[in-house]
Simulated scan of single mutants.
Amino acid sequence: MACYVRTNAELAEWSGETLNWAFGSAYHFVLEHGRLFAPRDLPYGIDHGDEGFCYTNASDVALRHRGLLYVEGFATVDVGGGLPIAHGWCVNPDGAVADPTWPDGTGLAFFGVPIADRGLWPHPVHGGGILQEPRYLLPLLRQGLTGGAVAELGRVPAAAGGRSGAR
Rank of each mutant, 00 (worst) to 15 (best):
R163K: 10
R155G: 00
V113L: 08
V30D: 01
L131N: 07
Y136I: 05
I130D: 14
L120V: 14
N92A: 09
L137Y: 08
R167M: 06
E10W: 05
L83R: 13
I115T: 07
D78H: 05
L108H: 14
A160F: 06
S59I: 02
S59H: 05
A158P: 13
T101C: 12
G127M: 07
E17I: 11
A58H: 03
V91M: 10
E72P: 02
F29S: 02
G107M: 13
Y55C: 13
A98C: 15
D41F: 10
F111C: 06
G127A: 04
R167N: 05
A96S: 13
M1G: 01
E13A: 06
G67E: 07
H28Y: 01
C90F: 00
R6V: 05
A12F: 04
Y70V: 00
V61C: 14
L137W: 05
S164G: 10
F37W: 04
G88H: 07
S25R: 02
L42Q: 02
G73L: 01
W102N: 09
E51V: 02
L140G: 06
G127Q: 10
L137V: 09
L153H: 10
V97S: 04
N20L: 11
P124K: 14
T56Y: 06
P100E: 03
E10M: 01
H123R: 14
G49L: 07
T101M: 10
G34T: 00
E51N: 08
Q143M: 09
D117L: 15
W14I: 01
L140T: 08
P43Y: 08
G154H: 02
E152K: 12
D104E: 08
G16A: 11
A109C: 08
T146S: 11
I85T: 15
H123Q: 13
A159C: 10
E17W: 13
I130E: 14
G52A: 15
F37N: 01
H33K: 09
I46K: 14
F110M: 05
A98V: 11
G127L: 07
T56H: 04
W21P: 05
H126P: 07
L108W: 11
W14T: 05
V61E: 03
P39W: 06
L141W: 03
R40Q: 11
L138W: 12
A159V: 10
A58L: 05
P122R: 13
V30P: 05
L63C: 10
R66F: 04
G128W: 13
P103G: 11
R167V: 03
F111I: 02
Y27Q: 02
L68V: 03
L153Q: 08
V150K: 02
L19M: 00
A116M: 08
Q143I: 09
V97D: 00
V113C: 04
L19C: 02
G148E: 07
V125C: 10
G95P: 00
P103V: 09
A96L: 15
A22S: 08
R118A: 10
H33F: 12
S25H: 04
L11S: 10
R135S: 11
W89V: 05
I46F: 02
V91T: 02
G128C: 08
F74V: 00
